[in-house]
């Protein structure tokens, strides 16, 4: 089992998201995250999907997506360099003054930013790779157990210009 990313260009039509997510649920494929948004061509939407699967299932997933009429193109990010980022918000509740200070430090270290706070609550915005966001959560959960709320947006990705392979 391996983590993988693919990008889909799909028709920007009603029901396409249901069609794509239906392929995953109907065939018992494991979907970790899915983001979708309109592209510069208003008739096309672009999806970034992250999933976990073995090699054989992954081949089948790409084929199943590719044979959908609504899918214009499937791009496997395993073979190409991409820029990939995920937007995440984390709210930490019931903080003491000392903890608030500490959260500011943590944010700085993790290249995240505190974008809002009230006396006892801090709101962090982190635009990082999924792994970096995981690391931030790991730390925050350890320090502020049961006091954090997380909203994750799922990864978006685009092909890189400068390097041939790997994630930037």
């Amino acid at each position: 089992m391996k983590k993988r990313w693919i990008c889909l260009f799909v028709e920007n039509e009603t029901g396409v998201l249901a069609r794509i997510s239906g392929i995953f649920s109907g065939k018992s494929y494991n979907l970790d995250s899915l983001t979708v948004g309109i592209t510069e061509d208003k008739t096309i939407s672009r999806m970034t999907i992250s999933l976990t699967s073995d090699d054989k299932t992954f081949e089948q997933i790409k084929k199943q997506l590719g044979r959908s009429v609504e899918v214009i193109k499937v791009v496997d990010f395993a073979d190409i360099a991409v820029h990939m980022k995920e937007l995440m918000f984390v709210r930490v509740n019931h903080c003491s003054d000392r903890e608030v200070d500490e959260i500011f430090k943590i944010s700085k270290t993790f290249h995240a930013s505190v974008i809002d706070y009230s006396p006892a609550t801090v709101l962090i915005e982190s635009i990082q790779t999924e792994n970096r966001n995981n690391a931030l959560i790991f730390l925050l959960e350890k320090c502020y157990a049961n006091r954090i709320e997380i909203v994750r947006g799922g990864s978006v990705a685009i092909e890189a210009l400068s390097i041939p392979k790997g994630t930037l």
Partner: peptide, 16 residues
């Protein structure tokens, strides 16, 4: 009906 049949047909669409 498009939602119901989506996974058992080749293509399904509502004319809007």
């Amino acid at each position: 009906i498009v939602g119901i049949t989506r996974s058992i047909c080749k293509y399904a669409v509502t004319v809007r």
